[in-house]
């Protein structure tokens, strides 16, 4: 394991570093099975155990190509992939519908995706619905008590990260020396599009994480809960966070988790402070007029 410098493009291998040895069963989640190997091949969905507990695993396969959709390759989440991931989440919810909160299976997202399918057919049929469906499924699972941990092992880019990662309770990331990338687009591209020179943006990003790219900056913003410094550390770290999440859910601290929780964390870590001020102002302003809008 020592020789591995990066897991970028190796989503399937990454699963093995995380779950119990040989426990991953692809294409089966609860009562759901995916029988068509050509269906959404970029999405790796299945069930495993982590320290003996059942978990749903959803990962990207950067080596797969979706023959039906030529823009879907290299870990891109296309229409089929997004819906396949959504179905895996719903199957997890259904499987544990009658279980106690403490027994709802965790969902582990192994994140290495550069984007959503950027094609014409995708727009005609609505790529936005596919990624939206997956996010709603994850949000529903999270709110129904499933602990969701996203583990960024490679690329977590923009809209694809929004759909596969940012609805998790906690987000973990391998440190940048493993080649992990978290951003909307590289600073070089941003520099070109907003017409600001790269040096300026780089200088600004050292003091202000909203400009910058990379896991460390996302950590400061509260977007990443914890950075993992060893590949071998992923398993324990995920286990630890699942436990933390279960505790928070048991205590009804839903607001400490998920996107809202990341907002709080961003304030604590000093990376995203204006958000809170703006919300506080709005709350105050609404409180002053709320009665007017309540029908008698």
């Amino acid at each position: 394991m020592e020789d591995i410098e990066t897991l970028v493009g190796r989503g399937r291998e990454a699963i093995d570093f995380i779950v119990d040895a040989d426990s991953f069963e692809e294409n089966t989640v609860g009562a759901l099975t995916f029988d068509d190997p050509e269906f959404g091949p970029g999405a790796v969905c299945g069930t495993a155990t982590l320290n003996g507990a059942t978990v749903t695993v959803i990962a990207n396969d950067a080596m797969a190509m979706n023959e039906k959709f030529p823009v879907v390759y290299g870990g891109i989440i296309g229409m089929e992939e997004g819906y396949k991931m959504a179905k895996s989440v719903y199957a997890s919810i259904t499987a544990d519908a009658d279980k106690d909160l403490a027994d709802k299976r965790a969902i582990v997202l192994v994140v290495d995706t550069p984007g959503n399918g950027p094609g014409k057919v995708e727009e005609i049929f609505g790529m936005n619905k596919s990624t939206g469906a997956y996010q709603l499924a994850l949000a529903e699972a999270r709110l129904k008590g499933h602990p969701i941990v996203a583990m960024v092992i490679g690329r977590a880019i923009s809209g694809a990260f929004l759909c596969h990662g940012l609805q998790a309770d906690h987000i973990l990331s391998l440190d940048a020396n493993f080649g992990t990338m978290i951003h909307v687009m590289p600073l070089t591209s941003i520099s070109r599009i907003i017409r600001k020179d790269l040096e300026t943006l780089q200088a600004l990003s050292t003091g202000n994480p909203v400009f910058a790219a990379g896991p460390r900056f996302f950590y400061e913003l509260g977007g990443v809960q914890e950075l993992v410094t060893e590949i071998s550390g992923m398993r324990d770290c995920i286990t630890k966070h699942i436990a933390e999440i279960r505790t928070a859910k048991a205590e009804g601290r839903e607001d400490d988790l998920g996107p809202w929780g990341r907002g709080k964390l961003g304030k604590e870590r000093g990376g995203r402070v204006v958000r809170d001020e703006v919300m506080a102002l709005m709350n105050e302003q609404f409180a002053a007029v709320a009665d007017q809008y309540t029908a008698s």
């Binding site: 929004l162 687009m185 400009f211 996107p259 990341r262 958000r275």
Partner: peptide, 18 residues
């Protein structure tokens, strides 16, 4: 997402979806 403050914009999208 507004590229000038891309990371914050991205996180806000996820919050909205939530």
């Amino acid at each position: 997402v507004r590229l000038h403050e891309a990371n914050a914009g991205l996180l806000a999208h996820a919050e909205f979806m939530d």
